[in-house]
Amino acid sequence: MQFVSRSQWGARPSRYSLVYIADTRGVKIHYEGTAVPASLAKADNHRLCAGRVRDIQASHLANRMEDYSDIAYNAMVCPHGYVYEGRGAHKKTAANGNQPLNIAHYAVCAMVGDSGLTQPTDAQLNGLRDAVEWLRASGGAGSEIRGHRDGYATECPGGPLYAWVTKGAPRPGGSAPSKPSAYEPFPGQGWFKKNPNSPIVTAMGRRLVAEGCSAYGEGPGPQWTESDRQSYARWQRHLGYRGDDADGWPGPSSWAALKVPNV
């Protein structure tokens, strides 16, 4: 991976302390959504890329309506395949559309736009995969690779990038990954302890009801509640767990056994 740290590209300090997250379900791919000069992809124009990242950070810090703490993305990838550290690993993004979406996935932005440079280069696609794998290894990112538009009403990451995402985000010249599981990957115990509001919680609750483990007075719904924890504890006891192993906080083995469908 051709990695460019914050200090190397000249990042300004964050305005506020960035929110720590232990892990995510995966990564969402973004594009700039504005015009990007086609000439940026020329080999001798790589010298312009760090300045472009600085400009994007400056525009985000100047956006008082959104009141960004920093550049919104965890990483950016230039047409030459370099990965620029944005907020970085274990930091909540501000790019996915709302707080639950920002907690669920990291955000990686490719330097392509809606005009000019719209088609990602092969080097850039490799860089995007590098960024995803870096966030998996260093930030606890899960297996999902999705587009910004998955779960939020937007054109991002644009047609060409989204087509690549829907093919499984393969490296150029390589084969696409195997078809993902029909079941939701385990989002991490820490995710549940943050009281998430997510369709994953609803899907989990419906599976618990179907397995005869309901402690719900009403619902289930998307907001994690004590009823969800009590229902999950019943599921853990159903599987034979006892004591602290049946405390109602999901773990990877009990989650895999529950088979929560993808949402």
Rank of each mutant, 00 (worst) to 15 (best):
F186P: 07
D130W: 03
P177M: 11
V132R: 01
N96K: 10
K194L: 11
F192L: 02
Y152R: 03
A95C: 10
A182L: 13
Q189T: 13
P100Y: 09
P160C: 02
E144C: 03
Q230F: 01
P196W: 11
G139R: 06
G188H: 04
Q119E: 13
I103E: 11
A123C: 00
R171P: 06
T93W: 01
L135Q: 04
F186H: 04
P100T: 14
L101E: 06
G221Y: 12
A104K: 12
D150A: 14
A215Y: 02
E211A: 15
Q223V: 15
G151L: 09
K91N: 12
T121K: 03
L161V: 11
G205A: 06
N98E: 03
A169K: 02
S214K: 12
C156V: 07
K167M: 11
T93E: 00
A169M: 03
A95S: 13
A215M: 11
H105L: 02
R129N: 06
V132T: 05
A89C: 05
V132Y: 02
P177F: 06
T166I: 13
W164G: 05
P157L: 02
K193V: 07
Q189G: 15
P187Y: 07
A110T: 04
S115G: 11
K92R: 15
A95W: 07
V165E: 00
T166D: 00
T166L: 14
V201M: 14
P172A: 04
Q119F: 06
V201S: 02
R171C: 07
A131R: 07
E184D: 03
K92M: 15
N197W: 08
D114T: 15
H148Q: 08
Q223P: 02
F192S: 04
V112N: 09
Q189R: 13
Q189V: 09
A137V: 05
L101I: 01
A110E: 01
D228V: 05
A110I: 04
P177H: 06
D122M: 07
Y232T: 08
C109H: 00
W191H: 14
Y106D: 03
A203F: 05
W134Y: 14
L117P: 13
N98K: 14
G205D: 01
S138H: 14
K194I: 10
A95M: 08
H105Q: 02
G127Y: 04
P187N: 08
A89E: 11
L208E: 01
P222H: 04
D114A: 14
I103V: 14
H90S: 10
R229K: 14
D150L: 06
Y162P: 03
V201Y: 04
S198N: 15
R136Q: 15
R207T: 06
K167G: 03
L135D: 00
N96L: 09
G205V: 03
G139S: 05
E184F: 00
Y152N: 10
C213V: 11
A163G: 11
S178D: 12
R146S: 09
S143K: 11
G97E: 07
P120G: 02
T118Y: 10
S227G: 08
A141S: 12
S143G: 11
G168V: 09
P160Q: 06
D130H: 12
I103D: 09
Y183V: 09
A141K: 09
G97A: 09
P177G: 15
K179L: 13
